[in-house]
Write a protein that binds this DNA or RNA. Structure first.
Lengths: 223, 223
DNA sequence: CGGAAATCTTACGAATTCCTTACGTCCCGG
DNA sequence: CCGGGACGTAAGGAATTCGTAAGATTTCCG
């Protein structure tokens, strides 16, 4: 059973072509011939999205932005505009690749393959480590069933760590992922948030310090 | 401390440009101005490789093929050839992206960012030698299942040795890899850390002395 | 066996890294 | 206009790490 791919493409001919090639390559494409409103509920359970930016009515870039609010699914963007500014914008919004039309379907398939080659880890909605539970969908955290109120940034921090439970992450990578690069958040800032988080979680061992490196998500068994 | 990126690019001007942009974006680029033989030993510890396919003498595609034998590091390929067959070949060989020259450096940076946004997987390999276990991802060391607390530098030392278990490494190469060149760590310093490590591991035979040369990772069966 | 070189071990001080608290700012809802 | 929460920064003090020195021990080699 191939991996599921959502293709959002209004052009009949191109869409047919893409879907056929993907199917030949062993994937299971779903074809949306128009840009629909994307939400957690409407997004099908797919492992990758091929998104044409030039959809009538909707602006594909907005779809991408919406999508990234609730999902980390890889997105391969198609566009007729071979314009660096556009590419940069799309990639900044979280696109994983950007192809300029016209292109050979074969290349598209290979780029899809390249994206799906690497397994997505810990990107699932819910991550559970020990007594700690992190629900990305609901943006909720609970310990031993009891809900814990955390701030946006604290949640981001936990979610970042939860992507690879048990693996050490450097401060710099955490900062890059969690802090706003604009607002000069220094790496010291992370310490403060970690500190607050530990207090809220009621157990310091959920976020372990890796001395000289950064932090790591633990199961809270120590301590 | 940004993520390390290896740039393999013979063109002086383009290389300068790329390196500068990457540095501005907060990465730590290393620039190879020629295609060198790639092996587990010669590949620096980087999180991504930018590889120009059109290198004089060597054919970049071969480098890519070699690389994939022993490493899963993401590769972004540059090429002057805007040719689907070439793109497909590179992607099939394990490239993660393919950019056609000329391009705007800004786009390159964004594509690098897009690749590194997702946590690299397949890293954090675990090395086991005898009863010794070294987990690069978790940054943990254990002996016969029992966790052993080691300092950052001690871990680096072990990890360096573990790259070639059983093979002797000179003090100088270990120092280069493990010590901070800034802070004048003399090679004598290594002895001290080896000593501390042996005590922590509870068995001196895991790190064997190679008289007049340096050290070697052993399985701990001696002694 | 003896001496020189290489290595081991220990102790200690300096530097780094980390945690916590306190405080000021910004933004939002009332 | 007034709270209150979220967040960044600063600062102290605690904990950890690391380099160096110095003396002990081992290895090599004649």
């Amino acid at each position: 059973m191939g991996k599921k791919v959502l293709v959002i493409e209004d052009d009949q001919e191109l869409g047919t072509q893409i879907v056929k090639r993907l199917r030949d390559a062993g994937y299971e494409p779903t074809w949306w011939k128009e840009g629909r409103r994307l939400s957690r509920e409407t997004l099908p359970d797919v492992e990758l999205v091929v998104l044409d930016l030039m959809l009538p009515g909707t602006y594909g870039m907005d779809l991408l932005k919406d999508l990234r609010v609730f999902s980390e699914v890889p997105v391969l963007v198609l566009s007729a505009r071979n314009d660096t500014a556009d590419k940069v914008r799309a990639l900044r919004l979280g696109a994983d690749d950007y192809m300029t039309k016209p292109f050979w379907p074969e290349e598209l398939v290979e780029r899809v393959r390249a994206r799906l080659r690497r397994p997505t880890l810990g990107r699932g909605e819910v991550v559970e480590v020990g007594a700690l539970r992190i629900d990305r969908g609901r943006r909720e955290v609970s310990v031993r069933g009891g809900r814990v109120e955390v701030t946006r940034l604290e949640f981001e921090l936990l979610a970042a760590l939860a992507e690879r439970p048990g693996e050490a992450m450097t401060r710099s990578s955490l900062a890059e992922r969690v802090l706003d690069p604009e607002r000069d958040g220094t790496e010291r800032t992370l310490d403060v948030h970690v500190s607050r988080l530990r207090k809220k979680l009621g157990c310091g061992a959920f976020v372990e310090t890796v001395w000289g490196i950064g932090y790591r998500l633990g199961d809270g068994r120590d301590e």
